[in-house]
């Protein structure tokens, strides 16, 4: 299998600060890959460099064998790169169905059509996707009236409507209840294999339930890429996260019962500190 996404020496600096520094990464087609790391590790910045929302200051990004380093976010989106966003409010005044339709019509309908038009295939796609993420009952509800968890589900439906080859998910489980993040996990696991998934996530339960490969970022560099077991077992990773605490505290609950409601907890690194994504905004 060839690599769908290749990063070579990708870096981004803000003045003297190197938020992302010389990252090499190969994501195989069909992979379920997670990016983790403590706050400030550069996850969200790397995420934006991949999506094209932010330009790299060094290195190259290759998607399906074509170099896309210089391509805008719009062009990368048209090449099959979709994303769900952490803080996105989507299109607040519009209904869930309209939100998905907006994405669907760009990729299979006729977004440039100037007259009112029934887009049968877009409508069908919207029905399918809302059904898939469990929002079919909420199709006509404006996004502003959806709960936080429902908006995250809708984010996924919108991203899938872009018919992605590569789906980037920025902290999809942030702020979700246990039931909601459980549902999210199922959703992602049920995605067809021709969609490659990269997930940036603080919630290690979700990460270990979903990912087959995990890349740990620390201070803008790749600390380790390996299987979930290798990551759990790595002393370096543990040190990066917690400094001095024992490995057991960090990973034990997740390792034993990745999904159990009782055992979940305290492994969630995300709840402390500011959201790491504000790094990019600050400069």
């Amino acid at each position: 299998m060839s690599a769908l996404l290749e990063l070579r020496g990708v870096g981004r600096s803000f003045g003297a600060l190197k938020a992302v520094d010389g990252v090499d990464l190969d994501i195989e087609s069909g992979a379920r890959h997670a990016l983790i790391g403590p706050n400030g590790a550069g996850k969200s910045t790397l995420f934006r460099l991949i999506s094209g929302e932010m330009a790299v200051t060094s290195g190259t990004v290759t998607l399906s064998g074509d170099e896309v380093t210089k391509l805008s976010q719009v062009r990368r989106a048209r090449r099959g790169l979709a994303q769900t966003m952490q803080h996105s409010s989507l299109f607040l005044t519009q209904t869930a169905a309209q939100n998905v339709a907006l994405a669907a019509q760009r990729h299979r309908g006729s977004a440039r059509w100037l007259l009112p038009r029934r887009q049968r295939d877009v409508d069908d796609r919207v029905t399918d996707l809302l059904d898939a993420v469990g929002l079919s009952e909420r199709a006509q509800v404006p996004v502003s009236s959806l709960s936080h968890g429902e908006r995250r589900q809708l984010e996924i439906a919108v991203a899938l409507a872009c018919e992605p080859r590569l789906l980037l998910m920025d902290e999809p489980a942030a702020g979700m209840s246990l039931a909601e993040s459980g549902r999210l996990t199922e959703l992602v696991l049920a995605l067809p294999r021709d969609i490659t998934v990269i997930i940036v996530e603080h919630d290690l339960d979700v990460v270990f339930a979903l990912a087959e490969r995990v890349t740990v970022l620390h201070l803008g560099q790749v600390l380790l890429t390996g299987s979930p077991d290798e990551v759990r077992g790595s002393a370096a990773v543990q040190e990066a996260y917690l400094g001095s605490s024992t490995r057991g505290e960090l990973f034990a609950p997740a390792a034993s019962t990745p999904h159990s409601p009782q055992g979940r907890p305290k492994a969630n690194v995300s709840t402390q500190g500011r959201p790491e994504s504000s790094l990019g905004d600050a400069s």
Binding site: L102, L115, C162
Partner: peptide
């Protein structure tokens, strides 16, 4: 009225609500 109700009009509303998100959906 027709333009506003068309798929194109929906895209305009999307831009009004959230231009960065439109970009990530592949709209220019």
């Amino acid at each position: 009225w027709a333009v506003s109700r068309s798929p194109f009009g929906a895209a305009l509303r999307g831009i009004r609500d959230n231009e960065p998100r439109m970009r990530s959906l592949g709209y220019s």
